[in-house]
């Protein structure tokens, strides 16, 4: 007979990912907040870029985000194939969603 829990069900063996997560003390509040913020910013940027190519200052103004934050996220999206360059406007580069340029 296997050992029974108080609910009568045998406990599922813990997966290595769960053991590591516990060993790391779970996901920190700071990391959770940062990932949530990343999702919010990406949604804003995708929304603005759906209206056509934009420069970093244009995206900053439209999404009410600091331009340095826009640039970092835009470059992350570029690196992972979601955003491409779409020409220049004065001193700035215009960016577009991949496939829409």
């Amino acid at each position: 007979m296997g050992e029974k829990t108080t609910t009568g069900k045998a406990e599922r063996p813990r997966r290595p990912i769960e053991i590591l997560r516990d060993r790391m003390g779970g996901v920190s509040k700071e990391l959770q907040a940062s990932v949530k913020e990343q999702g919010r910013i990406r949604k804003l940027l995708r929304g603005a870029l759906a209206g056509g190519p934009r420069t970093v200052p244009e995206l900053g103004a439209e999404c009410e985000l600091p331009t340095t934050t826009v640039l970092w996220h835009l470059m992350a999206m570029r690196r992972y194939g979601q955003v491409v360059e779409a020409g220049e406007a004065g001193d700035y580069v215009r960016y577009a969603l991949k496939g829409s340029e």
């Binding site: 420069t55 970093v56 200052p57 900053g60 331009t67 340095t68 826009v70 640039l71 835009l74 470059m75 570029r78 690196r79 360059e85 220049e88 001193d91 700035y92 580069v93």
Partner: peptide, 14 residues
């Protein structure tokens, strides 16, 4: 590199 061309970090200006 991170920008694929020379830009400044504050706002992506050339």
């Amino acid at each position: 590199g991170p920008y694929g061309r020379v830009l400044r970090p504050s706002d992506g200006k050339i």
